[in-house]
Lab assay of single mutants.
Amino acid sequence: STVKVRLGHLEVTLHNVSEEDVRELRELWKNGADEEDLRRWLEEWKK
């Protein structure tokens, strides 16, 4: 499914993403990950 995730002022649209992935991303964000960390996660996730 396609999910729009809003993290601060960063809005990311993920395609074919699982609930688990979204949860993981939100956890990262809650734990103080900055945009760099999130971008890195997204790069990994896209592979």
Rank of each mutant, 00 (worst) to 15 (best):
T2A: 04
E11C: 08
V5D: 01
R23K: 12
W41D: 00
R26M: 14
S1L: 15
L10K: 07
D21K: 13
E43V: 09
L42D: 00
E20F: 07
L10H: 11
N31S: 13
K30V: 12
V22Q: 09
K30D: 13
R39Y: 11
D37C: 05
V22W: 08
D34L: 10
G8D: 06
E19P: 14
K4Y: 06
V22K: 06
L14I: 11
R26Y: 14
N31P: 03
L38K: 02
R40E: 09
W29R: 05
R40C: 04
R26D: 10
W45K: 07
T2L: 05
E36F: 07
H9G: 12
V3E: 02
K46V: 14
E11W: 15
S18Y: 04
N16D: 07
H9M: 12
S18D: 07
T13L: 06
W45T: 03
L28P: 00
G8T: 02
S1N: 14
L25G: 00
E36W: 05
H9L: 12
D37Q: 14
L42G: 00
R23P: 01
K4T: 15
D34V: 11
E44T: 08
W41Y: 03
K47L: 13
K30W: 06
K4Q: 10
K47F: 11
E36N: 13
E43R: 07
K30A: 14
L10E: 14
E19Y: 08
D37R: 14
E27N: 11
W45S: 03
T2I: 10
V3M: 05
V12K: 01
G32E: 05
A33C: 04
R40W: 05
K46E: 13
G32S: 06
R26S: 11
E19F: 08
R39T: 08
D37L: 13
L38S: 01
E11V: 14
A33S: 06
E19T: 10
R39S: 07
K30R: 12
N31C: 03
L28R: 04
H15R: 07
S18E: 04
W45H: 11
E20V: 09
E43A: 09
D21N: 09
R26H: 14
D34A: 12
S18N: 09
H9D: 15
E44G: 05
R40T: 08
T2W: 08
E11I: 15
V3N: 01
D37H: 12
L14V: 05
E44H: 10
V12S: 01
R26N: 13
N16T: 02
V17H: 01
W29L: 15
L25W: 02
D37K: 13
L25T: 00
R40N: 12
L28M: 12
L14C: 03
E36I: 10
T2E: 06
L42Q: 01
V12F: 15
H9I: 11
E36H: 12
R6H: 15
L28A: 03
E35G: 04
E43W: 07
E36G: 12
V17M: 06
E35I: 11
A33F: 07
E11K: 03
E43F: 07
W29G: 04
N16R: 03
V12N: 01
D37P: 03
E20S: 12
D34Q: 10
S18P: 05
H15G: 03
D34M: 10
D21T: 08
L10D: 10
S1T: 14
E36A: 12
H15N: 07
E11S: 10
R40F: 06
R23F: 10
H15M: 08
V3K: 02
V5Y: 02
R26F: 13
H15F: 14
S18C: 02
R26P: 00
R26E: 15
L28D: 00
T13E: 08
E24H: 10
E35Q: 08
E43N: 08
K46S: 14
K30S: 13
G8K: 03
V17R: 01
E35F: 08
T2D: 05
E35P: 06
E11F: 09
H15T: 11
L42R: 00
E27D: 11
E27C: 09
E19A: 13
E44I: 08
N31T: 11
E11Y: 11
V12R: 01
L14H: 00
V17K: 01
T2C: 08
L28F: 07
E36R: 09
E27Q: 08
L10M: 12
K46W: 15
V3T: 03
W41H: 01
E36Q: 12
E24Q: 14
N31R: 11
V22T: 04
R26V: 15
W45C: 02
W29K: 07
V17L: 06
L14E: 00
W29C: 06
W41M: 02
K30I: 11
E20Q: 13
G8A: 03
N31Q: 11
L14S: 00
V12M: 09
W29Y: 14
T13W: 08
D34R: 13
L42M: 09
W45Q: 05
L25D: 00
R39G: 05
L25F: 05
D21P: 01
R26I: 14
L38Y: 05
A33L: 06
V5P: 00
S1V: 14
R40L: 11
V22R: 06
L38I: 14
R39E: 07
L7C: 06
R6D: 05
D37I: 13
L42A: 03
D21H: 14
L14N: 00
L7V: 14
L14F: 04
H9T: 14
R39I: 12
D21C: 06
R23Y: 11
D21A: 13
E11M: 13
K4C: 15
L25A: 01
L42N: 00
L38W: 04
S18V: 04
E35W: 08
E11N: 08
A33D: 03
E43L: 07
G32T: 04
K4A: 06
D37V: 14
K4D: 04
W41C: 02
V3A: 02
N31M: 10
V3I: 13
R23S: 10
V5M: 10
N31H: 11
V12I: 14
L14G: 00
V22C: 06
E19G: 06
E35R: 05
E20L: 06
L38Q: 01
L25R: 00
V3C: 06
E24C: 02
E19N: 09
L10A: 05
V3W: 03
R26L: 13
E24A: 14
S1I: 15
V17I: 09
V12H: 04
W41T: 01
L7P: 01
E43P: 00
S1K: 13
W29T: 13
K46R: 14
S18I: 04
L38T: 02
N31K: 11
D21G: 10
H9E: 15
L38E: 01
K47P: 08
S1W: 11
G32Y: 05
